[in-house]
Simulated scan of single mutants.
Amino acid sequence: MPVSTIYLLRHGDSRRDGVKRFMGRTDLPLSAAGEAQAKEWQRQLAHLTFSRVICSDLNRSRETAKLVALGHGVALQEISSLREIDMGEWDGRSFAEIRQQFPDAFSRRGEEIATFRPPGGESFSDLEQRVLPAFSRLVQGATGNLLVVGHAGVNRVLICHLLGMPLVNLFRIGQGYGCLNLIEASADGFRVQGVNLPRL
């Protein structure tokens, strides 16, 4: 039997337009669609008892966690180490703008996805080194059901690590807005039971 089940969510939708952007530390609230996604998970997970509810300290993660955990009577634990990857000077800017203004750097990012750092930002390798120790501390000795609301990059590096996948493959892992990943933790280690689930 698992010692703990980790319900690892990506926060709900926070987009304000249809433009594809680099969204890291830009601190947007949930959109109406994102709130609806979180409320749907609140409904689907209402039968569970959560021993802990954990989120990053960015609004879109915090708001999702509050809505999903509504009625569970568990205080939110905000962990800054679970923030999304820092995109530095590219944060909030559109892919089209960066591709046009910095074509060489844009191409390098695609070719060196694990190690490329935008100016003033982090690489996915940097993100992994920040997130994995925080995740290990959170789950050490944990029992019961844990709700963890992360971000697309955060969740991808965690799942890559748990599956033994190299970071260069992280975008093979889907992480739609408001998706759920199911992870069982036991004395034998971790088992990923579901990835990018839109519903149970």
Rank of each mutant, 00 (worst) to 15 (best):
M1Q: 11
S4G: 04
L8P: 07
R10W: 12
H11C: 06
H11M: 09
R15K: 14
D17G: 06
G18R: 09
M23G: 04
L28Y: 03
G34N: 01
A38K: 00
W41M: 05
W41V: 06
F50I: 12
N59E: 13
S61I: 00
T64P: 04
T64R: 02
V68C: 00
V68H: 02
A69L: 07
G71R: 02
H72S: 15
H72K: 15
G73K: 04
V74E: 05
L76I: 02
I79K: 04
L82N: 00
R83C: 11
I85N: 06
W90A: 10
W90D: 09
G92I: 07
R93F: 11
A96E: 14
R109S: 03
G110F: 04
E111D: 11
E112L: 14
F116H: 14
R117L: 07
P119G: 02
G120K: 01
G120L: 04
G120W: 06
E122G: 02
S123E: 03
V139Y: 03
G141N: 05
T143D: 11
L146H: 05
L147M: 08
H151R: 07
A152Y: 06
R156G: 08
R156Q: 12
V157M: 03
L158P: 03
I159H: 01
C160Q: 04
H161K: 11
L162K: 01
P166M: 07
P166C: 07
L167R: 10
V168W: 11
V168S: 14
F171L: 13
G178H: 03
L180S: 08
A187W: 10
D188C: 08
G189C: 10
R191F: 09
R191V: 13
Q193P: 00
